[in-house]
Design a binder for these strands. Structure first.
Lengths: 363, 363
DNA sequence: ATTTGGTCTGTGCCCGTACACAGAGTAAAG
DNA sequence: CTTTACTCTGTGTACGGGCACAGACCAAAT
């Protein structure tokens, strides 16, 4: 019985035409204050809520969105956010949402910068970005702020107080470091050494890695009973197989009491063979992301834990949040931390077989 | 440029009117085989995909769905699925989705049965059910199958091979038992006792509890190194506070080597005070669900782990799957196991502050 | 030959919002 | 008093698919 209130109903109650109601609703101007007041009163009285469907059908606007994230040649992790983005766009097609994909090369800030400049030259409605390189990203986003181009960040959080920063969707990097430490701690004995290993170049320019390290160190420093010794190492040239093997051998020789290793990215699988080769005593390994190679080592027992950063959701929700803001004009939350899923042999399949989730669309 | 194909376009190519195309699309009959063939040929050639928005706007059909789940007076757990259902319905309102809520009393199969009969007498388009009582649920669902009333199950899986069984959304109970065992095992020493405790009446009639127990026992039986002794206990009358305390005291006296207790439902918090009172040595507790009381004990360190069964998602996705099947005529997956999230002090806030998730709608 | 009953097909309005356009009204300028 | 410029308001159509209805067509019955 409670029939849905329509624009027509408001017009009748306010004693104006639906055109005038529409102008009030969309702040299109050219409305006398008298008419506006009557319309607003009628709207409040009738508790009008717009019909999203009719609105979407009538609107012929289209939304161009630039997507600036790492390509997945360098890192298979990035397949998943892209998949999430595509799934979102597919279901939003009727709403006129379209994307241009700008994949930048892993570990190549210059490439990031040049793609960013191309994006700035094109008239986009919004930007979805993974701001991997702190310096270059701030530079790009400063330009966005100046131009009024709104953006959503995924995977790496660069906190910005501007109005063009719509939202961040991704993990809380500090907390993921704490979690990794707590999990490793289960399998370590007093006095042992825990290594945090960054397999990246220019770690100082990657905010999320520094945050993970801080969390990891803080846990062990606060938890004093076991006296775990925490050290940090980094190695950027993992394409070079023999170099990587050498580095691991020397690292393990340097810390003979090592009982746990935390790799701060998805690239743990790249060093597992070398660790197995050169480490005599048992060692617990923990890393990020459920990519194929990591999962194989989880299944074989070589990796103890993987922390799932929900990459698919990062892309999917990133897109959906842009849609909610731009098209549906809804408020969106600025900081959206995704769950840090603890994945082990026993529960891994629920994270891998998440196809069910991909069948759905978030509006 | 690649303009969206409309019914009008197909009609033009096939040399018929859009009315005929519509009849073919919806199998409404009254179409000559000649016309049908032409339309189908045109559709395949043009790769028609319906415009969901326009379709939803034009259709004035409404969908009546019965929701038969436990009320949350007996168990706060059930607030969350209900919230998920409401959120889904709210966003689907424009699509004409409406629900009737039939909360049944915890531990009252007769109430379940009588509500089920009322539902069968009303002309619903579908049913969303938590089949807590095996016997009574099979009885109800047999009637649904006979009547052609389609249903989605949440939280407890009753496997049925019929075509009216659309989907199950919830945890894999066996796997959650295995997981609980693995987690407890971290904190137990060799030769200790692990208790699985059911705080329910009629455990034999609750399939998911039996499955959890099987998983729990299997883990410890297969993992032989520590020689953990597994025992099972159950107590149904937790409303009776002194009785519960008595029961716990006797149980702990009976198993002096207890180092871990696994409560198979969300009701762990009900026995924590008694356990603290009567257990001298350290004991690890694990249970289900992030309800307020459990979270307080997780924060204070009395509970080691909680396994999140994603109750909100059970309701939300259950509703969304019905919507996808009924309204959008999409295929849905029959078994949809939700992730078993391992929640500890370190990552709890990401599961509690999941408001971001509730802002969205899955179509 | 006309009527009847049935199958098949096209036309046109409906849904609720967006927006273009035309027209009314008013005030200032000539 | 007329013209011009501007603000304000109502009308009408588009959006794409659902669906009712009218009517065309054909075969069988009267």
């Amino acid at each position: 019985m409670n029939k849905r209130i329509r624009i027509k109903d408001i017009a009748k109650v306010a004693g104006v035409s639906k055109g005038t109601v529409d102008r009030v609703l969309h702040n299109r101007g050219n409305v006398s204050t008298k008419a506006r007041d009557k319309v607003i009163a009628a709207m409040e009285k009738l508790e009008y809520e717009p019909n999203v469907i009719a609105s979407a059908l009538a609107s012929k606007k289209s939304w161009q969105i630039a997507v600036l994230i790492p390509g997945h040649e360098g890192d298979p992790f990035w397949e998943q956010p892209l998949e999430g983005i595509h799934r979102a766009v597919k279901t939003l097609r009727d709403y006129g949402v379209q994307i241009d994909y700008y994949p930048f090369r892993d570990a190549d800030p210059e490439h990031f910068r040049s793609l960013g400049q191309r994006i700035l030259r094109t008239p986009y409605d919004a930007l979805l970005v993974a701001p991997s390189f702190a310096r270059e990203s701030h530079e790009l986003l400063d330009h966005c702020d100046a131009k009024g181009l709104k953006y959503v960040e995924i995977n790496t959080l660069l906190e910005r107080e501007t109005s063009c920063f719509l939202a961040y969707i991704g993990q809380d990097s500090y907390a993921s470091g704490v979690l990794a430490a707590k999990l490793l701690n289960f399998e370590m004995s007093p006095g042992a050494t825990a290594i945090i290993l960054h397999l990246e170049k220019e770690v100082y320019n990657a905010r999320h890695l520094l945050d993970k390290q801080a969390g990891f160190e803080d846990f062990f420093n606060k938890q004093a009973e076991k006296h775990i010794h925490v050290v940090q190492e980094s190695y950027g040239d993992i394409q070079d197989l023999t170099g990587t093997e050498c580095f691991i051998r020397e690292m393990l020789a340097k810390y003979p009491a090592t009982q746990g290793i935390f790799v701060s990215t998805s690239k743990l699988f790249r060093v597992v063979p070398a660790i197995k080769k050169y480490q005599q005593k048992p060692v617990s390994l923990i890393g990020f992301d459920l990519i194929e190679q990591n999962l194989a080592y989880l299944a074989s027992g070589d990796i103890s834990f993987l922390i799932n950063q929900n990459p698919y959701k990062q892309g999917f929700l990133g897109m959906m949040n842009l849609f909610n803001h731009l098209v549906l004009k809804r408020d969106i939350q600025r900081l959206q931390f995704l769950p840090l899923d603890v994945v082990m042999r026993e529960n891994v399949r629920y994270y891998v077989e998440e196809e069910y989730e991909k069948m759905h669309i978030v509006i």
